[in-house]
Design a protein around this nucleic acid. Structure first.
Lengths: 225, 225
DNA sequence: TTTAATTCTTACAAATGATGTAAGTGGTAT
DNA sequence: ATACCACTTACATCATTTGTAAGAATTAAA
């Protein structure tokens, strides 16, 4: 059963949407506090997000942009602002669908299942910063290319990407590779990192693995210090 | 530069659309004969298809369905029939987008580039009959699973799929595997076919490779004789 | 039913690729 | 200057892929 998060400040509208979705057999997460909307959403990690544009604290546009940067959850913008400009902006920010209220519930449901179908089978796909990584086979997609990463390199890239821009400790990486935190073989880890570095640079990726002395590694955009 | 095919019987409308697309820097293929629309389209193999529903010979719905069965080209249905029923049907048949005429050109272009972006990087993805095969790495996606096929099995499945339901000769398969038609090693081919069979059945695929005595092989749906 | 052709199965060996190990080089902070 | 940490390279081991070969099973026709 799919989970859908509703981001909508109007209580009446929110409940109506929730009702429609529940009747269509979806699980519903309702957001009512718009302070840390994005972190709340990531916490829920729904299969789809219904997003209003007019919100009290932040703009729906900002939320959409931030969501798309941090996750691969599909976003359906549902708003009463029927302006072409808004629609273009929303789509430009990566929204997957733009619908205007009022909207027939059948239409809404059709669009929702259309979007969900699009993302079907991408459950084990990790999409971050232009990377698309199959967490199962470790096939990596980037800029029209595709490469199969060896298992170890795949695990490393996966943990570096999910850690999201932060520094990843050697313990974490060791855990990902060998499932244990004891007796870390620093050298083996080192060699595997080197191999991943080589693979990424051969693909011409604008990222590079930076070592943080005594701590671990971090995946940084090229050029940034 | 992306190629877009226009399937629209109204000449005035067709030219207007072509004009809009050309100005937006797309290459345009115009279909004006609606007898073998699908084969014409597959011949063109555009990056996207603009499809009208009301057509003289066949229904746009049929065309959409057939297209989606035979190819992975995105279809944007653009019609003057503003009925929810039509929209639901079109989306149900796999259309990627449904817009009603008249439509602002900016909106059309935004939706087009949205759909194109969705298909970006899927250039070397072969999508047939529920299979999704990366022709580069031979990573196979099916029903939420993903597996890496060994090179030979990948090449075999690729040729079996692109040959589209027909019988594929041993010559073709031999060509795909070793790049030559001379000195076909029937046994080596045989062994590789067996291996592919095993892989597919392990994945629980509803297809099976049937041998056509003296000719070659064919990929058939399970249960069909 | 018998026979010959074709297709299939299985096991094995060579080639390729992934991984850990080890020894030595290079860089950095105090 | 020194000690520590990070990096490079080469090599041995292991797993996987692939062609080969020999024999079993299936099919079609007499």
């Amino acid at each position: 059963m799919k989970r859908i998060a509703i981001v909508e400040d109007d209580v009446f509208m929110r409940e109506e949407l929730a009702d429609i979705l529940l009747k269509a057999n979806y699980l519903v997460d309702k957001i009512s506090d718009f302070k840390n909307t994005v972190s709340q959403l990531l916490e829920f990690s729904p299969d789809l997000i219904l997003l209003d544009i007019n919100l009290p604290e932040a703009s729906g546009f900002q939320i959409c942009q931030e969501l798309k940067r941090k996750s691969a959850i599909p976003v359906l913008v549902l708003t009463s602002r029927d302006s072409l400009k808004d629609e273009l902006q929303a789509l430009g920010l990566g929204a997957d669908e733009y619908l205007t209220k009022p909207c027939r519930s059948e239409k809404l449901l059709a669009r929702i299942s259309n979007v969900l179908k699009r993302y079907e089978g991408r459950k084990n796909m990790l999409e971050r910063r232009g990377f698309l990584l199959d967490r199962n086979t470790y096939t990596l997609y980037f800029g029209g290319q595709s490469v199969i990463l060896p298992n170890n390199q795949g695990k490393l890239l996966e943990t570096l990407l999910t850690g999201d821009a932060e520094v990843i400790s050697k313990q974490q990486l060791s855990m990902a590779l060998w499932g244990t935190i004891e007796f870390i073989d620093e050298n083996a880890l080192q060699v595997n990192i080197t191999r991943l570095k080589r693979t990424l640079s051969e693909l011409g990726m604008p990222y590079q693995i930076v070592s943080i002395r005594g701590v671990g590694y971090s995946l940084k955009e090229e050029g940034n210090s």
